[in-house]
Amino acid sequence: MNKQYYLSNNGTHIGPYTLETVMKKIESQEHQWTDYVYDEAMGEWVMLLEHPEFSAKLSSKPATRPSSVPTAASFKTNLKDKEWFILKEGNNYGPFCQLDLVQMLQEKTLFEYDYVWHAKLPAWKRVAEVEDFSPEAIRKLKESHEQELAEIFFRRRHLRASYGASLIVHNNKTVFRGQALEISAGGAGVLIDNPNLQPGQSLFLHFQPGDGVPPFNAVCQIVSKQYIKDGVSAADPVKYGVKFTTLSQSVRESIRNYTTAKVA
């Protein structure tokens, strides 16, 4: 009997499917590499891009580097051309189109510090160093009013809602205090009274009870950082976006129920 998988997208669980069926759904763009799959053997929901069996299918398509800097004519890339590759933890994945990467940036599954490559680049570069993904380029796409682009910017894998709860934050060295601003089953927006934390860093967060959600603990990774004031001092809180890397399924469901009720 073939191994079966369930897929999740926008809070809906469907399946079971075989690996081959899931791959067909990805190829037909019915599902994305950033959607989640449930593996009974692992006992948890994992992003397709990070699941070992599915990522092996993706990483089997190797990226090759150019021997010279491409000409200006080769820079004319369609947003839907699958010509981008991502480097994560020593493995390259792809090809993706530019719209795929924009969507990953919106969903916080690709970050400014991750490396990407395209035929017009002489080497792997961090997303923050690539003009196609600069704030100005993303803003132009967002303001283009194209329906397909609008769906990317408004599509979210996890519903988000305002959430007020105090936090205790630990980074294996020091304990800080914080305040939750918003929450989803995938992560949270929080204020922390430390301006020196950086994207990519792991944190342990203890959420006090708030707005009907019981207290819970979560291991998180910082994915974004925003200064609240122009003149930053050590006493000024900073808004951090975090994704949950370790969170019990019961807590995740509790948060999902909370955000669904708030948004409805």
Rank of each mutant, 00 (worst) to 15 (best):
G186F: 10
N171D: 15
R177C: 05
F176C: 04
Q179A: 05
R177H: 13
Q198P: 00
I192Y: 08
A180E: 05
L197I: 04
G186N: 04
G178H: 09
I183H: 10
G200Q: 03
Q201E: 15
F204E: 14
V169F: 12
N194V: 07
N196S: 12
F176L: 08
Q198C: 10
F204G: 07
A188N: 03
L191E: 12
V169G: 11
V175R: 11
N172W: 12
L205T: 03
K173T: 11
P199E: 00
E182I: 01
T174K: 14
V169Y: 11
G189L: 12
G200M: 08
S202M: 13
N171S: 09
A180C: 14
P195Y: 09
L181Q: 13
L181R: 15
A180W: 06
S202H: 15
S202G: 04
L197K: 03
L197C: 02
H170L: 10
N171P: 11
S202D: 11
Q201F: 10
G189D: 08
H170F: 15
L197F: 14
I168C: 11
E182R: 11
G200F: 08
I183D: 05
F204D: 14
S202I: 08
I183L: 05
V169M: 09
L205E: 02
L203Q: 01
I192D: 05
Q201A: 14
K173Y: 13
F176Q: 07
N196M: 08
L197N: 03
S202T: 12
V175K: 09
V175S: 07
N194P: 10
A180F: 09
G178P: 12
P195N: 04
V190W: 04
P195T: 00
L191H: 14
Q179S: 10
P195R: 01
G178M: 06
R177F: 13
G187A: 04
Q198Y: 08
G200K: 00
A180T: 11
V169I: 13
G178K: 04
A188C: 01
N172A: 12
L205G: 02
L191C: 03
V169A: 06
N171V: 07
K173F: 13
N194D: 13
V190T: 06
L197M: 12
L203D: 05
L203W: 07
H170Q: 10
Q201I: 08
I183K: 02
F204N: 11
G200W: 05
A188I: 06
P195I: 00
A188F: 08
R177K: 14
P199Q: 01
L191T: 03
L203C: 02
I183F: 05
V175T: 12
I192Q: 04
I192H: 03
G189C: 12
L191K: 10
L197D: 01
L203G: 06
I192S: 02
T174H: 13
G187N: 03
L203F: 09
G186Q: 06
L205Y: 04
P195L: 04
Q179Y: 15
E182L: 05
Q179D: 13
A180R: 00
D193N: 15
G189N: 10
V169K: 08
S184C: 03
G189M: 11
R177D: 09
N171A: 06
A185K: 00
H170A: 03
A185N: 00
V169D: 12
A185D: 01
D193F: 14
T174N: 07
L205K: 00
E182T: 12
N171G: 09
